[in-house]
Structure formats: structure tokens, C-alpha cells
Design a protein around this nucleic acid. Sequence first.
DNA 1: ATATAATCGAGACGGTACGTCAAGTCTTGTT
DNA 2: AACAAGACTTGACGTACCGTCTCGATTATAT
Lengths: 207, 207, 207, 207
Amino acid sequence: MADTKANPDVKRGRPRQLSVRDAVLAGAGQLLLQAGIKGFSIEGVARLSGASKVTIYKWWPSKGALALDGFYTLVSPSIDTTLTGDVKQDLVTQVSAVLALFRDTAIGPILAGLIGEAQRDPELAAAIRERWLEPRRRCGVAILEAAQAAGHVRPDLDPTMVLDQIYGPIYLRLLVGHAPLTDDLAATLVRTILSGILASDASERQA
Amino acid sequence: MADTKANPDVKRGRPRQLSVRDAVLAGAGQLLLQAGIKGFSIEGVARLSGASKVTIYKWWPSKGALALDGFYTLVSPSIDTTLTGDVKQDLVTQVSAVLALFRDTAIGPILAGLIGEAQRDPELAAAIRERWLEPRRRCGVAILEAAQAAGHVRPDLDPTMVLDQIYGPIYLRLLVGHAPLTDDLAATLVRTILSGILASDASERQA
Amino acid sequence: MADTKANPDVKRGRPRQLSVRDAVLAGAGQLLLQAGIKGFSIEGVARLSGASKVTIYKWWPSKGALALDGFYTLVSPSIDTTLTGDVKQDLVTQVSAVLALFRDTAIGPILAGLIGEAQRDPELAAAIRERWLEPRRRCGVAILEAAQAAGHVRPDLDPTMVLDQIYGPIYLRLLVGHAPLTDDLAATLVRTILSGILASDASERQA
Amino acid sequence: MADTKANPDVKRGRPRQLSVRDAVLAGAGQLLLQAGIKGFSIEGVARLSGASKVTIYKWWPSKGALALDGFYTLVSPSIDTTLTGDVKQDLVTQVSAVLALFRDTAIGPILAGLIGEAQRDPELAAAIRERWLEPRRRCGVAILEAAQAAGHVRPDLDPTMVLDQIYGPIYLRLLVGHAPLTDDLAATLVRTILSGILASDASERQA
DNA sequence: ATATAATCGAGACGGTACGTCAAGTCTTGTT
DNA sequence: AACAAGACTTGACGTACCGTCTCGATTATAT
């Protein structure tokens, strides 16, 4: 009679029905594809998935969180590139992969929508940073740090900043649409950031 | 009726009461400041400004359009910089001004919110491009083209692309918040894009 | 330009342009026909007639008043019947005329709509009484008073009340629609009110 | 989901909160009393009752339906009269009851307003016929048919038509207001319809 | 077996905002 | 003046989601 109360660690009660989770995510992804963030609503996901609103609210803290998870059901085949050791080539390969994703699939606009939504939902913003941006940047950082170690790239530069100068234009165009995401964009961006923009002779003078 | 077609140019009817327009814009700006785009609603602007919803709907085609106009009542003192002819200095000056605007006033987040809203409102996106982005870019383009003409900057580069590589990182940070808008950002971005990131000797080799 | 300077001594200012009045009335009638009271609006009449709302408000005190005037542009050919001196026949003739008007033209439902509107507009109610109901009742009263004078109808009866018992059912059906306005309705109503409903022998006993 | 089809009869979901229904009806009734149909609005009922508009829209298909239901919360103590078998007396009793209801309570004007509203809302018209008019007419028909069976009233008459000639005047006066609903109205109407209006001797002649 | 406890669908509910319509009033310029 | 054009406020319309709150049915573990 010491403690009849069961072990609090032990899971009691009906276990979570994973099919529900999957149905919700599938519905979220589908709705995102069909209607974009503008038409994305928890109510809609509930309708599409057959799950009840309460269930969704129970497992996802916010509309944004759900949208991001739904987004990942659409993108899951992530970008893996094998590195050659050549800074320029490796950067171009990686940037091109992202660019292709944004241009050729629906996820470009959807990601833009998510970033847009993140402006009103700090949690979503954090999630996007942690789950989308950072993982992708780590490869870039790896390339650049390797190049720095090999003496190909100036050691005093912050790789993060360099990546921003490559990816920044892409996201800016994705979000604002002032210029298209062209095929040669990856090569151009990388080339410019590698060699700078100063004229050759001027470069010597300034160096 | 309506048999009086004397002069179609003549303005007939009660002229638009400008105080109403101003009140609405002031209300829009105020609401934007207080509550951000998240809390920005036509209903709210109507309440704040004392104007009726119908009037607002009459003059502004969409929530986004109103928000952008409200935004401009907050930013109107625009950025004017005197050019020296030195590429680096001129670019840093201009970028610093934008950066200061984003960091030290409330308009950074507000603009971010607007760009976010633009993801669901193509009209707003177009308006942002035309009314905010382009005007500001023109100065940058001017600086770069002058530098190209003077032979300081490679003539084969698209000035637009270069600007994207300077401003892109700023907007990316503003929108995603993965890194802060530091004081030295302007200088760093400009320096990197000018000289590139290759190590000095490597630069010579690769060139 | 002929009629613009009618007589400077008498009336000053622009004389009322009669065509406006007519246009408004025509528009009101037309709108009433097309859309019924449900779709009848001052805004609509203004659109249809080309007149401005202010003008309408100036000359008609209320929506109801305008509707009633519009109604009269549709009904103007009023009901005139020649009396024969035979109570029954004269009553049937007159009631039949009203009945035909309600059944065969659109003005039945329109009048019903006006009476409906009158429930929220006392002025309209008064106008309907004075301009529609009373004129029509006067003929009926005349018939009945003549019959009373001739000794054909009981002298102690209020002719008004008798008319109500003939027309009441018609208006009730028009307004509530629980039974149709049949062809023989006039004859039936008049016959019943003339002779009563008691069985012949019972009639003698009870009398 | 929705894999539980165990028992379709079973009530699922949060049960309807009857207090809300009652509050809405009470609010509707109250608003009807205070402001009449002119001031009756769903918005107002929502305010008064504390219920949300959406809830009201969910349960009542139209403004008219809500008004009629609100009306019934005001009249619920319906009219029951015990029949004596004497046509005249029974009719007078019943008609007097209706008359008293119209004169002495606020429901006269309210019912008039509803009938008015029914002119623009066919659903409401049908509801009024079915829920108000018909039930009340059935008693009258019963009285008349009993009298016909007993040989007191002509068997060739349509009881419905007779009732129209008694109630028609009452509703006409209620709706148009050309004459008051006096105390002796019930007796007069019934007496006239029973015996007719022909002078006694004329009656004999015409019979 | 039988509690106990969690999951889940269905749906009610108050709330906020949306975008629209018509009623009226007011203000100009034109005739 | 009379008039058209049109600006403006007010108030209600009907709709869409939001997030919270019951219910009942289901499904597991723990006595």
C-alpha cells in the first residue's frame, strides 16, 4: 500500500494514433500546395485530413508550426551534394540545388509564404531558422571553412556573412520578385563574391 | 438626365475631403506602429481614424495598399546622400543609412511585415517593388555605373546583381533574423563584394 | 434654352424641372415592377432615373412615399364602374374589378409589399389609407348607402364594416397567401355577406 | 478517420447549449417588443442575448425565422376556448380572444410587422401561415363544420371562406389601420356574417 | 475483469475581421 | 434656386477562421 500510484514515466492511456499525425501532415502539405499560405487554415487542414481541430491544436502549437511541418512533407528529399574540394564548384553546386528547388517546384513560393507568415509568428520564424536555414547553411560553412583552411579564402572573413551574400539575393528575389531566379544566377553570384567587383588593375592598386 | 456633357474634364461632385485621407493615413501609420501588421486591420484603421470602413474601401483597393500608404507616412523623410565619387565610401554611406533606418526606427520590422504580407497579396508586392525598392536601388545603380564608367569596377557586371549581393543579406536578416543587423555590417558587406573573398595570392593564381 | 428663363419677376432661381419628377416616378415604377419592394431602393431609383439622390430626398419625404408614387404611375388607369342600382350586381362588379387588378397585373404583390412596408413607416400607412383605400371604399359605401335608402339593406349596419367583410378576405389572401384569389371569389363573398350563412329555416327561427 | 460508425443515432460532439437557444429567443422577443420589426436585427439580437452572430446564423436560416420564433416566446400562452355548441356564441368567443390579443398586448403590431416582413421573405410567409394562421383557423373550421352538421349553417358554404370574412376585416384593420379594433367588433362581424345584410323583408323576397 | 487514462472526431460557442449594401446628409460645380 | 455628381458616416448584412470548450467513443495499461 506504499504507493499505488503507478510510475509516472509509464505511458498510460490510448497511445497516439500515428495515422492521425500523418493524415494531418498530408492534409497540411496538400492545402499548402493548393492554396498557399493565404488559403492555409487550421480549419481547412481539419477538413482535408478528417482530423478534428482539437487534435491539431493539441499537437501543433500554432498555425505556423503546422504549416512548416506540412511544408516538410513536401520537401523531405533534402539536398545532399558531394563535395569536391574546389570552393567555386562546390558552392555553385549547392546554390544551384537550392535554386532549382525554388524555381522548379512549388516550394519556392510556399517557403516565401512561410517566411512571410513568420513576420507575425516569432515561433515560426525561429522554427524556420533552426529547421530550414541552419541545416542548409552548415554545408556552406563547411565548404568555406575548408577553403579557408586550405588557404584559398581569406581567413579573416565570417563564412556566415559570405553565405548571406550568396543566398541573400536569392531569397530577396524570391520574396520581393524584383528580378527572376535565372539559371545562371548561382554561377554569377558565386563568381562575383569570389573575385569581387573591382576592375583587375584597380584590384591590384587597392590591394 | 445626365444631359449635361458640357465638359467631361471638369470635376463634379463633392471634392474629396483631404482631411479624411490624412486621418486614415495617420491612423494606418499609427496602427502599424502600435500593433505591427499582425494587428493591422481595416476595421482598426477605421476606428482609429474616425473614418468609415466604406470610405477606406473606396480609396484603397486592399489592406496591403493601405498598409503601404500608412507605412509611408512613417518614413517620408527619405534617404538622401551626397555622392563623393568614391565607390566604396558612397556605397557604405548609402547602405549605412538604410541599415540605420532598419535598426534604429520601428520601420525595420514594419517593412518586414509588409514584405510578409506581400506574399499573400501580389498587388502589395508590386507596390513595394515600385515604391520602395526601385527608388532606393536607383541610387545604388548610379554609384556603380559611375564606377564602371570610371574604370574602377568591372564593366561586365550587372549593377543590379551587385546591389542584391549587398542588400540581400540585410533583408534576409531583417526577415529571418538569423543574425543581427550590426553596426559594421555595411562596411563589411561592401568590402567583401568589392574585393572578393579569395586569398590575395590565390586570387592571382585563379585569375 | 427656351424654358430656362420662364419669368424673372415671379419665381427666382432655377424652376423645378418637371422632367426630373417624371423620370424619378417612372424609375420608381419600373424598379417596383422589376424588383418588388424588396429590391426597391432610393439608390436604385436614382440610378434608373438619372436623378440624384438629393433631389429625390428633397421632393419625397421617405422611401415609402416614393414607392407609393411610383406605384401610382403603374395603376393610374383607375377603376370606374357604372352603377345599376342592384346592390348585388354593383358590388360584384366593383369587387371583381379590384380582384382582376390584383390577380392579372403585377400590382397585387406590389401593393402587398407597400402595405408590408407601411408596417415600418406610419407615413406610408397613412398615405395608403388616404390615397388608395379610401377612394376605392367610397364607391362601395355609395352602393351600400343607396341600397339602405332603398330599403334593400338593413339601415342599422355600418357600410364600412360591410365593405371590410368583403375586401378583408381579399387583402388577407393577398398578404398572407393562405388561399388563392379565385375567379368566383367576388361573387361568393358578396353572396355570403348579403344573405348570411344561416340555414334558411334556422334563419327564420333565429330572427 | 471517422472510422467509428458504431451507432449513427448517437449524438456526437458538444451538445447544443440550450441556454444559448433560450437566450437568443428571449433576446429576439425582447427586441421585437422594444423596437418592433423596424428595429429588429440579427446584430441586435446577438447583442441583447450575448450570443454570437455566427451561432444565430447557424440555427436560424433567416431574420424572419428568428423574428417569428422570438414572436412565439411572447405569445406562447395560446388561445383555448371551450365550445358550447352555439355557433354564434362560440365564434364570438373565439374572435374576441384574438381581438383582445391584438388590442391589449403588443403582439398586434408585432404580428402586423411580421406579416409585413413576410412580403419580402416567402419563407417567413409560409411559416406564418403554418404556425400562426392555420392552427387558429382549425378551431373556427371545427365550429362551423359542427354547425353545418347540426343544420344550423348552410351546408354549401366553405368554412374557410366564412372565416376569412370574419378575420379578414380584423387583419385588414390591423395592417392598414383605417378603422380601430373596437370592443364590439367581434360581435358585429359574427352577427353580420350569420344573418347577412339584406333587410328582413327583402331577405324574404330574395329567398 | 475493471478501473484509469489518454486519444480522437464531432460539433457548439464567443469573438474578430472581412467585404458589401443602402440609408441619409453634406458639399461642390453647373445650369 | 434646382440639379447632378459624388464624398462621407452609420449600421447592418452574411461569411470565414480563430481558439476554447464539451461530449461520446475508442483503446490501451494497471490493478
